[in-house]
Nucleic acid binder design. Structure first.
Lengths: 201, 201
DNA sequence: GTCTATACGCGGATAGAC
DNA sequence: GTCTATCCGCGTATAGAC
């Protein structure tokens, strides 16, 4: 499973043959088919892992008492990033499914359900007046979780999710101009170059 | 070309056969091969269109005199969205290339060059002190353009790029809390209202 | 559990008639 | 320019020996 999904993500599902998986494991195709009924079964297992984890994370957010709409949205974003990092191969594969087969169509259907729940959370936060209302909530939702999902393009397995989560939430909610995001007071002015940070790559 | 690239984007490049393209056109495979040397040539033409357009857009930003680092970054974001919408099928295909063949590897190499230029712009804007410096510029760049690139997942051909561009820039630079971006102040009493929302729908 | 051997279809690509 | 016919390799999947 692990080897297969990694190959699917590196080369694409359709471009990866069962022979590729076998070779990577030092086995033959037949050995694979002794343990797995079909190539597509591997795909299904992986996308189900991703969908189950995402659904559970959203359920947990919904079940948490005492959160207002903005807190729920922030929790949903944090959870999404955590699940994405924690189940990186599975989520990566899920996000690349096209819907060519019934299995893929079912995965896309479940995914649309999740996207819908996230979009609802955004809308509720906007309706609550805690978020800017000059943008379409649906557009906000798509951009926000498009940013989250784009993490699969560059995050490496084993990355610590916490700082990443902080960065995503900070950027999404406060933007990249320095405004009210620093602790305590509003910054008055930051003008002038060379603020002495040499952040390496 | 148009039909082929659309199919590539709907089904995936590897999952789309030349026969699929032919059928969609009401022709046979042979008719396709009379006009095109190979399936991969179709891919190359499309990704080249995307890469050329993106490169030209960045060149135009770089060539514009009198812009500071932040203005250049904003222009780069706007240009990227515009190119993405304007060349939606080609850019979509580009963003899904895996690097399995020499053609794809070359496309990825060019794309990395573009990503590098965008990352440099972000870093320059941060170094200039106009953007928040509590986040790694490289992370900012990846999240920012990950958000931009995620547009290919849901933008439809023929969409007007202008409002989309505004939304992306607004969200990216100002975030989704209402802060200093809109004239007039928002209601201030949201703090303790707790469960004061009757969820619509 | 893994192997060799194999069935069988579909994929990209070509030859040559019209 | 488009067709029919065809080549050939590789893909998924299975049978059956060890």
């Amino acid at each position: 499973m692990r080897v297969a999904v990694d190959l699917f993500n590196r080369q694409g599902y359709d471009a990866t043959s069962v022979g590729d998986v076998a070779r990577e494991l030092g086995l033959t195709k037949s050995a694979i088919y002794h343990h797995v009924p079909s190539k597509e079964h591997l795909l299904q297992s992986a996308v189900d892992e991703a969908l189950d984890a995402l659904t559970a994370a959203l359920d947990a957010v919904s079940a948490t008492a005492g959160l207002d709409a903005e807190q729920r949205l922030r929790a949903a974003v944090r959870s999404s990033v955590t699940v994405l990092v924690d189940h990186l191969p599975a989520v990566t594969l899920l996000l690349r499914v096209h819907g060519n087969t019934p299995v893929e169509k079912a995965a896309l259907a479940r995914r649309r359900g999740i996207d819908q729940r996230l979009a609802d959370m955004v809308r509720e936060a906007v309706d609550d007046g805690v978020l800017r209302d000059d943008l379409d909530p649906l557009v906000i939702s798509r951009l926000l979780f498009g940013m989250v999902n784009s993490l699969v393009e560059w995050v490496r397995p084993g990355t610590d999710a916490a700082p990443l989560t902080d960065a995503v939430v900070a950027l999404a909610f406060d933007g990249l101009t320095h405004g009210a995001h620093s602790p305590g007071r509003r910054p008055s002015n930051q003008a002038g170059s060379g603020s002495g940070r040499g952040t390496p790559r």
